[in-house]
Amino acid sequence: MELDVRAQLERLTQRLGGEGATLTEAQRLSGGASMETWAFGFEGRDGPERLILRRRSAPFDEETARSISLATEAALIRATGANGAVVPQVRHLCDEADGLGEAYVMVRVDGETLGKRITSDVRFDAIRPALARQCGAALAPIHATPPPPGLKLKTVDAALELDRYEEVYRATGAERPILELAFQYLRKHQPEPVEPVLLHGDFRNGNIMFDPERGVAAVLDWELAHIGDPAEDMGWICTNSWRFGRPDRPVGGFGDYADLLAGYAAAGGRSIDLSRVRFWQMLGSLRWGVMCLTMYLSWRDGAEKSVERPMIGRRVSETEADLVVLLEQGL
């Protein structure tokens, strides 16, 4: 049975805002098949509050899933925030009394997340040249946060990622020469092992809230957080699928490699070679290509019915168009 989220938000409002607090807005923002995001607000004892609810609407097994639980997500946002990272404030971790299932509430942050607007909208023209450096600076305190004990975070490195995505690719049965060549090339050019750190895991244009005046306002979407090579987070934001039509600006479609790395170092991050970032960037394109294949297969095998899925399958060729250029250029 579909949960009446609005009714539960009325109850939650009483809990958070005190008796007599009134829900002033509740709107579902987005969400895929398994995750919902709601914007809501209330007028409580201590004045108005504007909040975001994230809740899971499908069963989840943290042992086998690639993503982390929402409780883990909230714990990481709190821990990295306490270490100086620019993240939303977690207002409340939901429990059984809330009747919302697995969920947490954070304070709403204003700004823009649509990648295309960050790269192209005139509102961001003035701040845009500063954003790559800010993104580097935003990563440093995340990577420097000791992972809170007791959380189930996976540790990966380049070899494990290549193994995992090649296994998924083989299982699809697809035969794509450019993806094959990228796997072979990346296996031969794996970077030296490095001391692993806490990673955001999905650090890209689209998952960062930007303010047109101040720049980075909050790092969002923590569900793929894990432990690994710090250059992985940098390579992912440089992957061309997240540059939204501006391949000439390698960092997110808004900035340059040097600014990303300089911002990271100036904020206390360790020195990272560009070639290491480029390795993870190329692996990022390959990973997105394999993910597009699996999204098509979820439609072919009947698990998903949306027309969106087979069309995402046709996005494999965008990663191939990027990979041939990266393979030509080298790391």
């Binding site: 450019i178 391949p247 000439d248 060729s317 965008e318 191939e320 990027d322 041939v324 250029v325 393979l327």
Partner: peptide, 27 residues
């Protein structure tokens, strides 16, 4: 010749799948 051939094949495919896509190195 391998990368050159794969590059032509990739360009032909993206022209069908997503002609507006700005690939790496295209600007």
């Amino acid at each position: 010749g391998l990368l050159a051939a794969l590059t032509v094949m990739a360009r032909n495919q993206i022209a069908i799948d997503q002609p507006g896509y700005k690939a790496e190195g295209s600007l």
